[in-house]
């Protein structure tokens, strides 16, 4: 029988693997586009050798396209780096707004595959919380995955962060399908990941009528 630690380790590894696969897929797509554009440049050169002049305007467009893809890859790598460093310390002070932005960006590819968009609303000012960053990222990923299964016909999830005095609330809404999801599926987040939630000293509730998943976290897990 699995211990809670085994389950958490398995879940963390699964999460890390999924995120890494998604990021590598994104980078691979960028490389594939650069490859095609570089190939097209070569084609133009070969055509010129056969007497067809190179159109400088086309070259300029191609160079612009390659630069765009390099900027795209740069953002992907920066996010990957941020994510990788989330395991540096078991507990640290993080800006929840930044962390939510990162998780929404990381989840975007899988959301787009499922035809879902994610709208993130965070408070104007930074919301600092002291927590286990990696566990929180893992838990948010699980919540987003569940939310994607429960999203209503508009296929748009709203994620709202609210700043309290000693706690923060993260609300996943527009989930009218929550009532149709089996309890087993919901319990994968609410029960199987109990250890994760306990480590975060958080609380999760689901409101099937309003179509919401509500995650409440302390601002400081050391208190």
């Amino acid at each position: 029988m699995n211990t809670e630690l085994d389950i958490m380790s398995e879940s963390s590894l699964q999460f890390f693997g999924n995120v890494t696969a998604s990021i590598s897929h994104e980078i691979n797509n960028v490389l594939a586009i650069i490859n095609e554009n570089a190939g097209l440049l070569e084609d133009f050169i070969l055509m010129e050798d056969k007497g067809i002049p190179i159109d400088s305007a086309r070259l300029k467009i191609l160079a612009g396209k390659i630069s765009t893809q390099i900027r795209r890859a740069d953002n992907v790598v920066k996010n990957m780096n941020k994510f990788a460093h989330s395991v540096d310390k078991s507990v640290k002070r993080v800006d929840l707004n930044d962390l939510l932005k990162l998780m929404v960006t990381i989840t975007n590819r899988s959301a787009s595959m499922r035809g879902v968009s994610i709208e993130l609303n965070t408070p104007e000012n930074p919301v600092f919380i002291t927590t286990n960053e990696f566990f929180l990222e893992n838990y948010l990923w699980l919540c987003l995955d569940l939310a994607m299964d429960a999203v209503d016909e508009n296929k748009s999830i709203a994620v709202n962060a609210e700043d309290g005095k000693t706690y923060v609330i993260i609300r996943f809404s527009r989930l009218k399908g929550l009532k149709d999801i089996s309890e087993t599926r919901v319990s994968r987040v609410t029960q199987r990941q109990d250890g994760l939630l306990r480590a975060l000293k958080g609380r999760l509730t689901t409101d099937t009528e309003r179509g919401e998943i509500i995650l409440i976290l302390p601002k400081d897990i050391n208190r």
């Binding site: 594939a32 586009i33 095609e36 554009n37 396209k65 893809q69 787009s112």
Partner: peptide, 17 residues
């Protein structure tokens, strides 16, 4: 392919051939 940039360039390169 959902990457328009990729698939359009591939189509152009095939057309050259």
């Amino acid at each position: 392919d959902d990457e328009a940039e990729l698939v359009s360039t591939l189509a152009e390169r095939l057309e050259i051939r």
